[in-house]
Design a protein around this nucleic acid. Structure first.
Lengths: 334, 334
DNA sequence: ACAAAAAATGCAATCGATTGTAAATAACGC
DNA sequence: GCGTTATTTACAATCGATTGCATTTTTTGT
């Protein structure tokens, strides 16, 4: 049984033309049931799979979605960051379910047009970008001429690119309120507000504190996003601070995990001495000791929404940004 | 400045043919430096990017490597599993550095030829498969006719497909020996030996115990690989066992994390009451409380090696399986 | 200044499919 | 049995680039 590689070979074998084969395999009504059966059986028998490149070239759609992770402002951040990979997993699930492949690239936005390498390369039908990093202007610029693009991240007024993300202000407010409800007065915020999303979480935090009359009890530590880098930040903070915070609001679960570890090293009990709340609601929060209270972003819904919007945009429809509801997940650390 | 989409348009604009443009853009020596400069400048000015699909169709190489995660025997396992995503991150790093894209698909091997969908689709130059799951025969069968394929997993005699993985028997031996060195006598092994890799780790574990005359002190709990499923397994075990083990050898770090959590819930101190060692050496082991001792597989090297072998196979060279050395990482849990 | 060699460019086939249209075959009524 | 519709199938253009070969242009030697 020779390996049939091209449609031409199959066509010759069956004594028809490639056109007939093509239609037969795609269940076209223009082909008689008899020959359709025959050709499909023949194709199966010889293990023939049409070349997708050629098909895509002809049909002008690739069936693949590009997923980019720009590693801009935070050096050392890996694709293997728990947040990225969680999101990536959901996106992969969602896209493969809808028949799309996922073309993954990690980019370090060095030269101006790092995005143009993907846009209009013909390899992808659309682009999902996880995190704005510090590239908001570039994204806005590209969004003006390339429609099928959706970005995970914060939504700000006047922003040109389509985003999906949670309501970070509300989420920040909920986190801080939860700590207040648990009796915390002195609260520390761990996270670098350079990033839009984190700035919004801090903003919400401040609002809750102000409402409770605790505005002056807040300390902000601009900790790194990467676990390895965050730990020394936090350990240094805990070692040097005069009045220990009663509650810690970490701007991400990864930072929160570093905080848990640092607290354990200082012999501080969680939630006894210090209460900790994270942000993201990642699955690893279930595996920490103690299990981590967090503001969940429902990344699965986020991924679904991004894919939805993207496909709508690919289809030519208009589709604007979506802001998702954050949700408080109370576990054992608060 | 109209958007130039095809080489033809550029060629017309410049008053040459597409052939000339093609050569000019690919720095062919057949083109005069003058026109090369001119055409390249023109291309840059109009933001022209050649359609990669067409190029790939012609050159018969795609510049993309498929990465498959077969989710066979373990239902509910996600791409977001820490092991997968760690490996995926390294692979992405390695492949993008070598100029390849990464086409990710999660597959549930249902029908016989789940692999054929990718093999010879023309979309990828090669295939990396993370984990054999329970599909060893299928992999062997495909390996016989499709060369550019490398699998992460265990290597067994007579195996037809090319694998990269650590020496699981040795690793298992090291883990058990470490527990013995730490004074453990009653040892529990958490992991389901249905999977080849895990069976090998158990085998090594048994050897070490036999050498120490502790062969009868081993308990095997076939815990699930997925964290959520592993936890009840382990909690049930700890609750029901008559003589508590002094050492736990978890067949993966994910299982080990579930064990740490279950132990904490039972009020057992680690490493005071029970010592725990994992397998994989994942980064999250740094973030557990206490930090997790583990057998490291050096997944970065594994990814590099897989990519190496794969590219050699794509180039038509022969390249056999590679077995990597496991390494003991002593942290705080043992 | 002219023939021969060298360099640069144009021409056209090719990769492997899809699809509109033309041609061939089958079915049908009277 | 013959003309007329319906069905099927074949033909050929097309997607956008690459590349061997033919052709034109330039350079070189004498």
């Amino acid at each position: 049984m020779s390996q049939i590689k091209t449609m031409k070979e199959l066509a010759d074998l069956a004594g028809v033309t490639t056109g007939t084969v093509s239609r037969a395999l795609s269940d076209s009504p223009l082909i008689s049931p008899k020959t359709r059966e025959r050709l499909q059986a023949l194709a199966r028998e010889h293990g023939f799979k049409p070349n997708l490149l050629a098909r895509n070239l002809r049909t002008q759609r690739t069936g693949a979605i590009g997923v980019l992770i720009p590693l801009g402002h935070e050096k050392g951040q890996h694709i293997s960051d728990p947040f990225f990979i969680t999101m990536l997993g959901y996106l992969a699930d969602e896209l493969t379910e809808r028949g799309y492949d996922l073309l993954l690239s990690r980019v370090i936005p060095e030269d101006e047009n790092w995005l143009d390498q993907y846009v209009g390369s013909g390899k992808i039908d659309g682009l999902i970008i996880i995190g704005q990093s510090n590239q908001s202007e570039t994204l806005d610029e590209v969004a003006a001429r390339y429609r099928p693009m959706v970005v995970w991240g914060g939504h700000a007024p006047g922003q040109a690119h389509c985003t999906v993300g949670s309501d970070n202000i509300l989420g920040g407010e909920m986190a801080a309120q939860h700590l207040i409800d648990r009796g915390c007065q002195r609260i520390a915020f761990f996270g670098d507000p350079q990033a839009l999303e984190i700035a919004q979480r801090l903003e919400g935090c401040k609002r809750a504190l102000a409402r409770a009359g605790l505005a002056d009890k807040l300390t902000v530590l601009p900790a790194h996003l990467v676990a390895e880098a965050a730990h020394p930040d936090i350990a240094g903070f805990l070692g040097s601070v005069s009045e220990r915070p009663q509650g810690i609001f970490a701007a991400s679960d990864v930072i929160a995990m570093s905080a848990l570890r640092a607290l354990a090293e200082y012999g501080l009990a969680v939630p006894g001495d210090v209460k900790v709340i994270g942000y993201d609601g990642l699955a690893i929060g279930e595996q920490t000791v103690p299990r981590l209270t967090s503001i969940s972003q429902d990344l699965r819904l986020g991924a679904t929404t991004m894919v939805d919007l993207l496909l709508r945009r690919i289809a030519g429809e208009e589709a604007g940004s979506v802001v998702l509801d954050p949700r408080l997940i109370v576990r054992m650390s608060s």
